[in-house]
Computed example of a mutant assay.
Amino acid sequence: MNVLGLGDAVVDKYINKHIMYPGGNALNFAAFAKKLGQQASFLGVFGSDKEGSYLKEVIDSLKIDRSHSRTRNGENGYSEVKVLDSDRVFVGSNKGGISSGKLLKLNKEDYDYLRDFDLIHIGLYGQVDHLLDKLQAMNVLLSYDFSDNFTTEKVDGIISKINYGFFSLSGKDSNYVKSFLKRNYTSNNKVLLATRGSKSAIAFDGKNFFEKKPNNIVPVDTMAAGDAFITSFLLAYLSSGKDSVEEAMAKANIFAAKSCQVAGSFGFGAKY
């Protein structure tokens, strides 16, 4: 498959270790897809600072295409993180940095480029929601990670424009999650799925619900476990053999568990 992460490439700064790692929903998706053996690309905005340069070096080393990305004069997006008992706690950010100051505009060459992808993945923090109408009109499969910080208004405005939607609903019981997924499912959706931390993930395909418990492991770092799950699920479900929803969820659990044995989203730590 040929897939693309559209939106955010940020630096996660582990302030109690003075180490930074590449991250962001869109970049994580591309990196995990590459790790899973797929053709992967990234399109987004980098800052002109050392953090932006570091991200581009990592992306190039992974052989992820970024040829249509932009570099703007200013600060790259970053978050500040502490790791407590192997779990990551976000303590601050620059709210996307330069990418949030002026929204990304795509030209004809960009849209021609995007038409060649089997799937485009976007996250809540990617600063590219304004592009969804044109992307939907291209008839390219779209997936969207609403994370855990979505609003009802955000879901209502986006859900009918995408094919695959993902939510983080930790702390919610299964009845609530099933009702939520069924209520928000539209005719344009293929699968909506909610992860619930250490509890089972639940998916809905418009007719049936599917539920899988995560693999029980002792993590090194839980950063981007959700992104790893989403990427693996999508690639397994959309592969030529087309696994069932349940089979794709099982593979996603295995891959997400493995990702939790790596520091940062997918490694490549550097001192700062």
Rank of each mutant, 00 (worst) to 15 (best):
F255P: 09
N184V: 03
D12W: 08
D205T: 10
G264S: 10
I98C: 07
I59K: 02
M1G: 11
N107G: 14
G269P: 07
L238E: 15
A194F: 04
L106E: 11
K56A: 11
P214Y: 06
F117L: 09
T152R: 03
R115M: 09
A248Y: 09
N94Y: 02
G241N: 14
N2C: 00
I202N: 00
N163I: 01
Y144L: 00
V177P: 05
G47Q: 09
V11W: 03
A40I: 07
L84S: 12
D118F: 01
K213L: 06
E246V: 14
N76V: 11
K258Y: 13
S67D: 12
A33V: 08
H121F: 10
Y164L: 05
D129N: 12
K207H: 13
N76T: 15
L55N: 08
I59S: 03
S99H: 02
Q38N: 14
V58W: 00
I98R: 02
D12N: 04
A248Q: 11
K199Y: 03
Y111F: 15
Y54G: 09
D118C: 00
Q39D: 15
F210H: 10
A31S: 15
G101I: 08
V155A: 03
L141V: 02
G197M: 04
K17E: 15
F229H: 12
L6W: 02
L181C: 07
G24M: 06
F32L: 09
L103R: 11
F180K: 01
M223K: 00
I159F: 01
V218T: 15
I217D: 04
L193D: 03
C260W: 08
Y237D: 09
F229K: 05
I158L: 05
N25W: 07
S259I: 00
K199F: 04
S53E: 14
F210G: 05
N184C: 06
F150R: 00
D65C: 11
Y78C: 04
Y111V: 08
Q38T: 00
K56N: 11
S179C: 04
S187V: 12
V128K: 07
S187Q: 11
I98A: 03
D221T: 10
P22S: 08
K212W: 00
S93H: 06
G74C: 12
L6N: 07
K199H: 12
L103E: 14
R70N: 14
M20F: 13
S99E: 09
D110R: 04
G24W: 08
S41C: 13
P214C: 06
Q136I: 00
L4H: 02
Y237S: 11
F146E: 06
F180V: 06
G44Y: 07
N2P: 03
E109V: 06
M20C: 12
Y164C: 08
L27D: 13
L4F: 00
R115T: 09
V218L: 12
L114V: 10
Y176I: 07
S160A: 12
K182A: 13
F150W: 13
S48K: 08
D65R: 05
I120R: 05
A270W: 01
D116W: 01
I122L: 15
D145Q: 07
K154T: 15
P219G: 11
D145A: 10
F167D: 07
G269R: 03
S265H: 03
A250C: 13
G126S: 13
D227V: 10
D49P: 10
